[in-house]
């Protein structure tokens, strides 16, 4: 990529002409399928993230890396996960980059981030269905920050494997309010996944546990629907 074009990204800010950015998206479009070319573009774009480019330019780069980013992008993006202004844009790219490197970067960020950034990391782990994060996420279910605990419950529902199911089963009796509602919803997702996998007996056990009189009405309704669904599934 021409240095002049890269320099324009580095100085780009919202409200200015984005013609140079359009040129880059066109280059990326044309490079699809050509690994060497996309790797070169990726390297150039990463140089913007480590420069003093403005937030607008870095956000543009992260959007592009979400499409062409590889393991090569992960270290730089991982370094942005804790920043107030950079965390969301880094996740925008990382969440879409497949592979173990991105998995490890997100999991590693759990212990290094706080506040909204940490919630975002939890959300991305859930969206990726990252089973290796199950234990760490389960540990957040009892967190005093309701937003974080709710996000962890939602993420476990996305993962919905045996370990997630066990953590949610336990949490349904220990959590309260909004967090518990999300725990119950995610526990339903675990049962639905079991039904889809043909493990009806395990699924029915969960649905039964969610039909108690202490359960909120929508949960009881969904559990009853789950029972009917399991009965008719092949």
């Amino acid at each position: 990529m021409e240095q002049q074009l890269l320099d324009k990204v580095k100085t780009y800010d919202w409200g200015q002409s984005r013609a140079a950015l359009t040129e880059i998206t066109e280059l990326i479009k044309k490079s699809h399928g050509n690994k060497a070319e996309t790797a070169a573009i990726e390297k150039d774009l990463l140089s913007v993230l480590t420069s003093d480019a403005k937030r607008a330019g870095k956000q543009f780069v992260c959007r592009q890396l979400s499409i062409i980013g590889t393991d090569a992008s992960v270290p730089t993006l991982a370094g942005m996960l804790g920043g107030e202004e950079t965390s969301d844009m880094a996740r925008y790219a990382l969440e879409r980059i497949p592979g173990a490197a991105a998995d490890a970067a997100l999991l590693g960020a759990l212990s290094k981030t706080g506040g909204k950034a940490k919630v975002g990391v939890v959300n991305s782990l859930g969206q990726r269905g990252q089973a290796s994060a199950g234990e760490a996420l389960a540990g957040l279910l009892g967190n005093s920050d309701e937003t974080l605990a709710t996000a962890a419950a939602a993420a476990l529902g996305q993962i919905a494997d045996d370990n997630a199911g066990k953590a949610l089963a336990k949490a349904k009796d220990t959590t309260k309010g909004k967090v518990r509602l999300r725990v119950l919803d995610s526990y339903l997702l675990c049962a639905d996944k079991l039904t889809a996998a043909g493990k009806k007996a395990e699924a029915l056990e969960i649905y039964k546990a969610l039909q108690g009189k202490d359960m909120p009405k929508p949960i009881r309704t969904a559990a009853l629907r789950g029972v009917l669904g399991a009965a008719t599934s092949k």
């Binding site: 699809h32 979400s66 499409i67 062409i68 965390s87 969301d88 996740r91 925008y92 990382l94 969440e95 879409r96 980059i97 497949p98 909204k116 950034a117 919630v119 975002g120 959300n123 991305s124 859930g126 969206q127 937003t147 996000a151 939602a154 993420a155």
Partner: peptide, 18 residues
């Protein structure tokens, strides 16, 4: 197409999630 599969969803700004 792997790039196309990446576009099936988007990361949401924290604290929002599905």
């Amino acid at each position: 197409n792997d790039a196309a599969n990446r576009m099936l969803g988007r990361a949401m700004r924290a604290p929002w999630h599905l």
